[in-house]
Design a binder for these strands. Structure first.
Lengths: 207, 207
DNA sequence: CGTATTATTATACGCTTGAATAATAGCTAC
DNA sequence: GTAGCTATTATTCAAGCGTATAATAATACG
């Protein structure tokens, strides 16, 4: 009976590896298929180690959810340049890989399905959603102001809700059935839709 | 040791009760909390009965998913009247209860998270999505034609994708955080957004 | 009224789960 | 270099899982 070979990971890396393995398992096998043992196999360790890094499996899953939210929001929140460019990039980033892919929505849906069940996840979700929508609202305020359009808070709020909904909805469609759309079709539809909503051109494609 | 009291249900009702109990459990406890025993308790029967009506738990869950899709699509597909009224009703129905509530999205998300895992659920999903979008596309074709606007297939396709995305996205937002919106706000935003997208009025509120 | 059939309950089984504990291997400091 | 610490593995445990099977109550039918 050979003992498994020891490998001590570099400082702080194991934790991240375990979270990443958790997400891999959830996206591939679903929440109920993401067992401690399966996650450990994916991370290349034994099951017992999980409890050395996390108080419980639930806590590890909650941290994994934070990582998902971060990966879904961080790229879009980092857009730079003039308002028009930022708005275009915001849309494009959310509707192309890696944000828009089947792994992302599997993870997102798995956690959303737990929002009613687990108050911890519920709070993580709400926080992430408001951050996301508020950053979009500020972006729209800048954009409308730059275009010389009315940009009062109420107007921006309504636009942010609508555009956030549009982008989210197209993101879902693209993630779930990307093969039903032509290359770049979703981004193009989103761009022209946002132009129609705002009543303003948002410029050409990036290149 | 008292034996549990017997109650024989009316012809064909038990099956429906079990499916409904399955959905209750999934929405309240998540997919992994929806165990055969919990579902049986909810349905007011004992666990063994499940296997008298279904070949396996998986089969019961798949049928429950069909029921979810049906409940999400049937109301919206039954709109009647002139194209303008139908379009308004389509939007309003999808963004108000009972379609838009937290139970619905919990169920939807639970199943979506399994689409990558289970090919059976994947097929059920795709079928439901295409049916939904196609009925919207036909509705838009009627509407645009009635308004004397160009209504070629390609135009309708793009509008259907965009409006479907918008409505779905707002549905998600409303289901997950209905308290962040004022009464009727989502419907109002959806109506004016669709008007902007189509470049046409879609009339007043119903009353 | 008696018997066959079916719906339902009750119990048992093998397996997997998350977690607890004990043993061990590698790292660090003196 | 060796003592002590901690990361890691190995093993064990009770609980819960889906399912199978047997017993029993209600119904249907002659």
């Amino acid at each position: 009976m050979n003992r498994r070979s020891f490998h001590r990971a570099a400082e702080g890396e194991r934790r991240q590896e375990l979270i990443e393995a958790t997400l891999d398992c959830i996206s591939e096998f679903g929440l109920k298929g993401a067992t401690v043992r399966q996650i450990a196999i994916r991370a290349g360790v034994t099951a017992g180690l999980v409890r050395h890094y996390f108080e419980s499996k639930d806590q590890m899953v909650a941290e994994a959810y934070r990582a998902v939210i971060a990966s879904l929001t961080e790229k879009a929140s980092k857009v730079v340049g003039d308002p028009e460019t930022r708005l275009r990039d915001f849309i494009a980033i959310n509707l192309t890989e890696p944000v828009a892919d089947s792994r992302s929505i599997s993870l997102w849906a798995a956690f959303i399905s737990q929002v009613r069940v687990d108050p911890v996840l519920s709070e993580i979700h709400r926080e992430g959603y408001l951050t996301f929508r508020n950053s979009l609202q500020e972006l729209l305020a800048d954009f409308l102001a730059a275009k010389g359009k009315p940009a009062d808070a109420e107007t921006c709020r309504a636009f942010a809700i609508a555009i956030n909904g549009l982008v989210d909805g197209l993101w879902v469609e693209g993630c779930l059935a990307g093969d039903l759309f032509r290359e770049g079709e979703l981004v193009a539809i989103a761009m022209s839709s946002v132009e129609a909503l705002l009543g303003t051109s948002i410029g050409n494609a990036k290149q």
